[in-house]
Simulated scan of single mutants.
Amino acid sequence: MELTAEIAAIRSGAGDSGRLLGEFRRAVLLVPLPDGPDAGLMSAVSGGIRWIYAFTDEEALARFAAARGEANAGREWEYLSILGARLVDAVVPTADRPAGVAVNVADEDGSMFFPPVVGIVPDGSAVDLDRGEVA
């Protein structure tokens, strides 16, 4: 099953979180580069979490551009093609704050968030890991 189908299954209540995570890690995702390859990845901060935008295909990215009012602005959207596993294992740990991945955010019934928690991101980047710290 592909990632979009697994997202749909989860959203309908018939999916499996393990399969969802596996499909996410195997999926080639498109991550917009806001101002070219030297500017980093397009993201937003909400609730103290940096959410990296990722899309399952060019059509999903185009819907995001349209939702932002930028679909017909003559702008060509550059993006990075990257495996979901590489995004969470190599990119998330370099973020300036806890980071997760928001997939297909312009698709009301097809979006999915992969938060910075144990099992999704490396333990050192997870916000829910008890590190035994004493206040």
Rank of each mutant, 00 (worst) to 15 (best):
L29N: 02
R68A: 15
G40H: 10
A85I: 02
R97S: 12
A102L: 09
E108N: 10
M42T: 14
D123V: 15
E108Y: 12
G48E: 04
L83N: 04
G15C: 09
P98N: 05
G36I: 12
D109P: 00
D38K: 15
V134N: 06
N72C: 08
V117C: 08
R86C: 02
A135V: 14
A67T: 07
D130L: 04
G119T: 11
F114I: 03
P34C: 11
D89T: 08
P32S: 10
G36H: 04
I7R: 08
V28R: 08
A95N: 05
R25E: 14
A39F: 08
V92T: 12
V127M: 13
S46T: 10
D107F: 05
G22W: 13
E133N: 07
G132T: 01
I49M: 14
N104R: 07
G47P: 06
D89S: 15
R26G: 11
D38M: 08
R86H: 04
L87W: 15
R68I: 13
L80N: 01
F64C: 11
R131N: 02
R75Y: 09
F24A: 03
R97W: 10
V127D: 01
E2C: 07
A71F: 02
E70R: 15
D107N: 09
F64K: 06
V28I: 14
A126M: 04
E78C: 03
G69V: 01
A66G: 11
F113S: 13
I7T: 03
V134Q: 11
G15D: 09
R25L: 10
I120H: 03
A60I: 00
A85L: 10
T4Y: 07
A71Y: 04
V117Q: 12
A99G: 12
L33H: 11
V101C: 13
V134T: 14
S111W: 06
P122Q: 12
R11W: 01
A44D: 00
N72H: 14
V45H: 06
A8C: 03
L80P: 01
W77K: 10
L21Y: 04
L83H: 12
E2I: 01
L30A: 08
S12H: 04
P93N: 10
I120E: 01
G18C: 02
D123F: 05
E76A: 07
A8W: 00
S125G: 10
G84F: 02
A54F: 04
L83P: 02
G13A: 03
P34S: 09
V134D: 09
A65G: 06
G48I: 05
A60V: 00
V101L: 06
V103S: 02
D35N: 10
A5F: 00
A102N: 12
E76T: 12
G40A: 09
